[in-house]
Amino acid sequence: MVTRWIQAEIIAVIGGGYGGAAVAKALDAETGAEVVLIEPKDAFEHAAGSLRALVRPEWAPNVFFPYDRLLERGRVVRERAASVDAHGVTLASGARVDADHVVIATGSAYPRPAKSGLDSAAEALAALRATHEELASARRVLVTGAGPVGLELAGEITSVWPEKQVILVDPAPELLPAFAPELRADLLSQLAALGVELRLGTTLAEEPPAEPGRAKTFTVTTTDGAGLTADIWFRAHGVHVRSDFLSGELAAARTPQGRVRVDEHLRVEGQERVYAVGDVTDLAEAKMAGYAMQHAEVVARNIASALRGERPTAVYRPSPVPSVLLPLGPTGGVGQVPSPEGPQILPAETVALYKGADLFTGRFAELFGTAPDAAPAPDASPATAGAGASA
């Protein structure tokens, strides 16, 4: 049977991050619709690899993937969305992209070095290398925030400079409380072996006098009255959801935290042809790259159904068992994935095989068409891909 696509239909995807790039690629390859990806950056920034890029600047180019080979028939518009409604996008330039289907995939902002916040890959590379020089000169490194990003940063730093003292400060009384006790015990053991100092259940009474990522010796006090001296610090907390541009009836679907309410088909609340994927969604799960790519699969299937004149049937339900692949450098780390028996704990060797060795750069090279001869990364649950991409 020959599938007849509605050729005139336009799909606007706002945001070219993990979920946006994946849904745009799938719809461009599998439907006859015109896919328009709206993204101000000149290259996809693989945030899950940015922490390794910080400590290994020769590896940093692996973090960036140009958009020019992502779509075969669609187009990428290098602009920022000023306003998005149920019928399309008004760009910062004032130009308009009218669309029959809209996918909101604008993700979130996060402090450097996890996300650069820059639109130019060349500028982002230069910023990483400059911060590397600052870090290289420091003996004691303070990281505020002991979630996945802070933990991965500690692991990357100690893998290159085992002599550096890394201090993690977090107001929570324990690490990764949502995960199995066995995972947390393994994590604590590995951190102790790396010499990472944990100060949990407290926070800084005031910010250090230097900017994050700038070398300057300082002493600060934590809220429990202890002193702490370091030569450089990084902030590994503070997510800002990018949804301020939603207008009209779409703005009504935003939560007070800026996330977008969606139904089981990932349609924006009250909408038939507007979807959301990734960090911007108000789903009860961690905001990780792998989940965003799972969202993209569901949305691509549902829009393809709509183009055939059918009702959407693909459903997304967050797993009750949280997943993570959390490298501590190229050879260490902890992992947890769902199984029929409950949480399955992964040893460091498996975490390194699936993620730590190359941080999934092989599969993104395949997605973006930048290394057609590269072997794909070992298969892993998509839910765990890029676990440290966002906190």
Rank of each mutant, 00 (worst) to 15 (best):
A109R: 14
A109K: 15
Y110T: 02
Y110E: 03
Y110G: 00
P111C: 04
P111T: 05
P111F: 00
R112C: 10
R112L: 13
R112N: 11
R112D: 09
R112W: 14
P113N: 08
P113M: 06
P113C: 06
P113E: 04
P113Q: 08
A114V: 06
A114D: 03
K115G: 00
K115T: 01
K115F: 01
K115E: 00
S116L: 02
S116C: 05
S116N: 04
S116Y: 01
S116K: 02
S116E: 01
G117I: 04
G117L: 08
G117M: 07
G117C: 07
G117Q: 08
G117N: 10
L118R: 13
D119T: 14
D119Y: 08
D119L: 12
D119I: 08
S120N: 06
S120Y: 03
S120R: 07
S120W: 03
A121K: 06
A121E: 05
A121M: 11
A121Q: 07
A122H: 09
A122K: 11
A122D: 11
A122R: 13
A122Y: 08
A122E: 12
A122V: 11
A122S: 12
E123K: 14
E123M: 14
E123W: 12
E123T: 15
E123N: 14
A124Q: 02
A124K: 00
L125E: 13
L125K: 14
L125W: 12
L125Q: 14
A126L: 09
A126V: 06
A126C: 09
A126D: 10
A126F: 06
A127L: 15
A127S: 13
L128N: 00
L128S: 02
L128F: 07
L128D: 00
R129N: 12
R129T: 14
R129V: 10
R129W: 14
A130P: 03
A130G: 15
A130H: 11
A130Q: 12
T131Q: 10
T131L: 05
T131D: 06
T131A: 10
H132R: 14
H132G: 05
H132I: 07
H132D: 09
H132C: 09
H132T: 11
E133S: 09
E133F: 03
E133P: 01
E134G: 04
E134V: 04
E134H: 13
L135G: 00
A136E: 12
A136R: 13
A136D: 15
A136H: 11
A136I: 06
S137D: 15
S137M: 10
A138H: 02
A138W: 01
A138L: 04
A138V: 04
R139V: 09
R139E: 15
R139I: 06
R140T: 14
R140F: 04
R140S: 10
R140N: 09
R140K: 12
V141G: 03
V141R: 01
V141H: 00
V141P: 00
L142R: 02
L142Y: 01
L142Q: 01
L142F: 03
V143P: 01
V143L: 14
V143E: 07
V143D: 03
V143Q: 06
V143H: 05
V143K: 06
T144S: 15
T144A: 12
T144D: 11
T144C: 15
T144K: 10
T144N: 15
T144Y: 10
G145W: 05
G145H: 08
G145Q: 08
G145L: 08
G145Y: 05
